[in-house]
C-alpha cells in the first residue's frame, strides 16, 4: 500500500455564498504525480490555495505528512513548494536574485540559497542567463524560473499550477524533463494543466474537477478505458465527456 503524503478530506470553500470547492476529497501518494484537471472556474486554484495553506477551508481538512492545515500550517509550509499560475517574480531583479531571495524566505542561509540557485538554474537551462534581469526574459524563460523558485529549499511536495501555459515546445520539454526528474528523486507533485496530452504523459493519476467537485479520478489509462478502447480514446475525450462541451468563463 503506497504511503499517502497528502490527504484532502471533504474540502469546502465558498465566496459570497457561491461554492467554489464543494466537498473535494482525494489523496496523493508519496512520489506520485497527481493531475488535477478541470475547465476554468472548476475550483482547481482554490483547492491548491487551501492545500498550500493560503486559504483556510470553510469545512474539511488537509493533512500533509501527518500535519493538518487547521493548526500546523507552518509545518506544512516547510514541506511544500508552489509554482503559481501567474509569473510571480520580481522582474527588475536577475534570475539569481529571485531564486536567492525566495531561498532566504524558505529559511536557507545566504550560502545555501546561492548554491541551490546555481543548481536550479542549471536544471531549468538558465545558467547563462543567471545575472540577466527577468523582465528581459522570454515567456518560456520566465516560466522556467517561475518553476525553479518553487524548487528552492528542496520541498517534498510540489504544487505546480499550469506551469507550461503559453510557452514554446523547447521550454515545455525542459519543464517536462524537470518534472520527471523530480519524480525520479521521489518528490510528490500535484499538477494542474489544460493540456490533456501533458497530463496523460506525466501524471500517474488524475482527478477531473467541475463545478467545485471531483467528477472522476483514476489512472489516465483506466479513465480512457471506461470510455472505449484506450488506443482510440484520448484523455481529452474523457475530459469533455465528464465536463461537457458548453463554454466556460
Amino acid at each position: 500500500m503506497p504511503e499517502e503524503f497528502l490527504i484532502a478530506q471533504d474540502l469546502q470553500k465558498s465566496f459570497n455564498h457561491i461554492n467554489a470547492v464543494d466537498g473535494v476529497s482525494f489523496s496523493i501518494h508519496k512520489g506520485e504525480i497527481f493531475g488535477l484537471l478541470g475547465p476554468n472556474g472548476a475550483g482547481k486554484t482554490t483547492t491548491i490555495r487551501m492545500l498550500s495553506t493560503v486559504l483556510p477551508p470553510d469545512n474539511g481538512d488537509v493533512v500533509v505528512a501527518g500535519h493538518s492545515v487547521r493548526n500546523q500550517g507552518d509545518l506544512i509550509r516547510r514541506l511544500i513548494g508552489v509554482c503559481p499560475q501567474e509569473l510571480a517574480l520580481y522582474p527588475e531583479f536577475s534570475a539569481t536574485d529571485n531564486l536567492v531571495f525566495f531561498g532566504r524566505m524558505v529559511g536557507l542561509s545566504g550560502r545555501e540559497a546561492r548554491s541551490q540557485a546555481q543548481a536550479i538554474l542549471e536544471r531549468v537551462g538558465l545558467t547563462d542567463r543567471a545575472q540577466g534581469r527577468v523582465e528581459k526574459f522570454s515567456g518560456g524563460m520566465k516560466r522556467r524560473i517561475n518553476l525553479g523558485i518553487s524548487l528552492m529549499g528542496h520541498p517534498e511536495l510540489l504544487f505546480l499550477d499550469e506551469p507550461t501555459v503559453g510557452i514554446d515546445p523547447q521550454s515545455r520539454n525542459n519543464i517536462y524533463e524537470t518534472i520527471l526528474g523530480l519524480k525520479g528523486e521521489g518528490k510528490t507533485i500535484l499538477y494542474t494543466t489544460h493540456y490533456m496530452e501533458e497530463a496523460d504523459r506525466l501524471c500517474d493519476r488524475v482527478a477531473i474537477m467541475d463545478h467545485g467537485r471531483i467528477v472522476a479520478m483514476d489512472r489516465p489509462l483506466e479513465l480512457k478505458r471506461k470510455l472505449g478502447p484506450p488506443d482510440k480514446v484520448t484523455l481529452e475525450d474523457v475530459f469533455l465527456n465528464m465536463t461537457g462541451r458548453s463554454l466556460r468563463d
Partner: peptide, 14 residues
C-alpha cells in the same frame, strides 16, 4: 495581483 505576495505566504514567512 501578480501573485508574489501569495507566493511569499507559502514560504516560511507567516
Amino acid at each position: 495581483r501578480n501573485g508574489t505576495l501569495e507566493r511569499l505566504l507559502v514560504t516560511r514567512l507567516g
